[in-house]
């Protein structure tokens, strides 16, 4: 029976015994229908790896659902809430597997600007645009070095390079939520510093966007 109301799901899962076992079995079947389809683009469906992952995730999800029943506020269908837990668990595991061998990227910008950047001419840009862009790049690099902590610079570089927040956070010894806050603080600092120097991000961006037009 997977047409329970939210209240029925909660009651059965709290009941223990047969009602709880049946509810868990039904929820397991629902997640097994939804999750493989949803992550099909990220892992080959029906492959042994996919089946093992889905089985592991479903078990983990059922445990988390039972542990977190009190946090369900009834603002969505219970099964959507359970799927949300399954999706996060699945993507966390997929990211971990994909990125586990990859070290956090180096900070590409240094205090002096990047020498290779200045030396390589960009044939698409006019000489004036090249000078503007180099000056702006150097100025932004300096602001980044002055305003951000090393952790913030590492986090920003990693995420700009496509590193998942979850994985970057783990390497930096924090959780994803804390990393987002750290980066939000970094973005605010940079934005305010630019404003203090009479620049808006849009103005700076326009210097880079002019190139090649």
């Amino acid at each position: 029976m997977d047409k329970r109301t939210n209240e029925e799901w909660i009651a059965d899962l709290r009941a223990g015994g047969e009602p709880q076992a049946q509810a868990l079995e039904d929820l397991r079947a629902i997640i097994l229908r939804g999750l493989p389809y949803a992550i099909a683009g990220r892992i080959a469906p029906n492959s042994p790896e996919s089946e093992a992952l889905v089985e592991e995730i479903v078990q983990e999800t059922l445990m988390r659902v039972l542990d977190n029943l009190d946090t369900f506020e009834g603002r969505s269908q219970f099964t959507t809430w359970a799927h949300k837990i399954a999706v996060r668990a699945a993507l966390t595991e997929l990211r971990r597997v994909r990125w586990r061998e990859v070290p956090l990227p180096e900070m590409a910008m240094d205090e002096e600007g990047d020498a290779s950047y200045r030396e390589i001419p960009d044939n698409q840009a006019s000489p004036e645009d090249q000078v503007d862009r180099k000056d702006m790049m150097k100025r932004i690099n300096r602001i980044i070095m002055e305003e951000l902590t090393e952790k913030q610079r590492m986090a920003m570089t990693a995420t700009m390079e496509g590193f998942p927040l979850e994985e970057a956070a783990q390497r930096l010894g924090m959780n994803r939520n804390a990393l987002y806050k750290l980066m939000h603080d970094a973005r605010l600092r940079l934005k305010k510093r630019l404003e203090k120097e009479g620049l808006t991000p849009q103005q700076v961006l326009s210097v880079f966007e002019r190139v090649g037009k």
């Binding site: 590409a108 990047d114 290779s116 950047y117 390589i120 960009d122 862009r133 790049m137 932004i140 920003m156 700009m160 390079e161 927040l165 994803r176 939520n177 987002y180 806050k181 939000h184 973005r187 605010l188 940079l190 934005k191 630019l194 808006t200 991000p201 849009q202 700076v204 961006l205 880079f208 966007e209 190139v211």
Partner: peptide
Amino acid sequence: MQADKSEMMQKVLTMLSNTQDVEMTCD
């Protein structure tokens, strides 16, 4: 390399441009 750096800088600036004083966290 230059294109990568320029792209990266544009990404940073776009993020700054879209940054709000109050933002929700992941949790």
